[in-house]
Amino acid sequence: MDRDDTTLRVLSTSDLAGLDISLADVVDTVEQAYRTLAAGRSDNPRKLSVKPDDGHSVSYAMLGRDGVRNVVAIKTSYKHGLHESRENQHYYTTLTIYDDVTGLPVAMMDCSRIGSLRTPAVSALLARECASPAAKTALVIGTGTQGRLALPFLLTTLPQLDRLLLSGTHPDGMAAVRAELARHYPDRDVEVVTDLAPAAREADVVVATAGAHTPAAVEAGWLRPGATAILVGHGLAPSTLHDADRVIATSEAQMRVTGTDMADADGDLPAVDVELPVVISGATKARTAPDQRIFAYNSGLVVTDIALGHRFAQLAAEQKLGTEVALWC
Rank of each mutant, 00 (worst) to 15 (best):
R3Y: 10
D5Y: 01
T7G: 11
S12H: 05
L16Q: 13
I21Y: 09
I21C: 12
S22M: 00
S22I: 00
L23H: 03
Y34C: 07
A38S: 02
G40A: 04
P45Y: 03
V50D: 11
K51R: 15
V58M: 09
M62P: 08
D66T: 13
D66V: 13
G67K: 06
V71P: 12
A73M: 07
H83C: 04
H83A: 14
L104N: 05
S116V: 02
S116L: 10
P120N: 03
P120R: 00
P120S: 04
L125M: 14
A134Y: 08
A135T: 07
T137E: 02
T143N: 10
T145D: 12
R148W: 03
L151C: 04
E180S: 10
R183G: 10
A200Y: 02
A203D: 09
V205I: 01
V206W: 12
A210C: 08
H213A: 11
A220W: 05
A220T: 11
G226L: 03
A227G: 11
H234K: 15
G235K: 00
L241P: 13
V247K: 08
V247I: 14
S251V: 07
M255P: 07
D261N: 11
D264W: 08
A265H: 11
V274I: 14
P277Q: 01
V278Y: 01
I280S: 08
S281N: 00
K285S: 15
A286V: 00
I294D: 13
D305L: 12
I306Q: 10
G309D: 07
K320P: 07
L321C: 03
T323Q: 14
L327H: 09
W328I: 10
